[in-house]
C-alpha cells in the first residue's frame, strides 16, 4: 500500500518537446470518456521505471505521467468505468473513495483534453 496525497500525485506532467501545429482537442469530456474511458489509438505508451511515457503522434508531443497517473493509465481499457478505477485507486493508495473519484474524473478530463483518450479527436 502506498499512501500519497491525492491531487498532487494525479497531476499530469506535460512535456512539450515538439511544436504543436494543430489546435488542441476540445476540453469537454465526451460521454465515452466519462463512462468507459478508452485510450486514443494513436497514443503509444510504455512504462519506464514506474512512469508512463506517452507519445502522441497526432500532436507531435510527449507526455510523462507520474506513478498514480501511470496506474490509472494502466486501468484504462475501454471496459473499466471511472468508478471502478477510483475504487482501485482508493484501495491501493488509502484515500477515500469520494476523493479518489473526484481526482480520477479530473485526471481523465486532463487526459481527454490532451488527446490521450478516445473522443472527438479520434480518427479511427
Amino acid at each position: 500500500m502506498l499512501a500519497a496525497p491525492a491531487l498532487m500525485v494525479f497531476r499530469l506532467t506535460r512535456v512539450l518537446t515538439h511544436e504543436c501545429r494543430r489546435k488542441p482537442p476540445d476540453r469537454r469530456m465526451t460521454a465515452e470518456a466519462q463512462g468507459l474511458p478508452r485510450k486514443h489509438p494513436h497514443a503509444a505508451a510504455r512504462v519506464y521505471e514506474g512512469e508512463a511515457f506517452i507519445v502522441l503522434p497526432q500532436f507531435h508531443q510527449y507526455k510523462i505521467l507520474n506513478e498514480v497517473g501511470t496506474r490509472i493509465w494502466d486501468l484504462i481499457d475501454g471496459k473499466t468505468s471511472q468508478e471502478e478505477i477510483a475504487k482501485v485507486i482508493s484501495q491501493e493508495y488509502e484515500v477515500a473513495f469520494e476523493t479518489a473519484l473526484d481526482d480520477v474524473k479530473q485526471f481523465l478530463a486532463d487526459l481527454q483534453a490532451n488527446g490521450m483518450l478516445v473522443g472527438e479527436e479520434s480518427t479511427r
Binding site: T13, V15, T17, Y48, E51, F53, Y62, I64
Partner: peptide
C-alpha cells in the same frame, strides 16, 4: 537537464 523528456 531540466526537461522531463531529456531526463528520461
Amino acid at each position: 537537464l531540466g526537461n522531463a523528456y531529456h531526463d528520461l
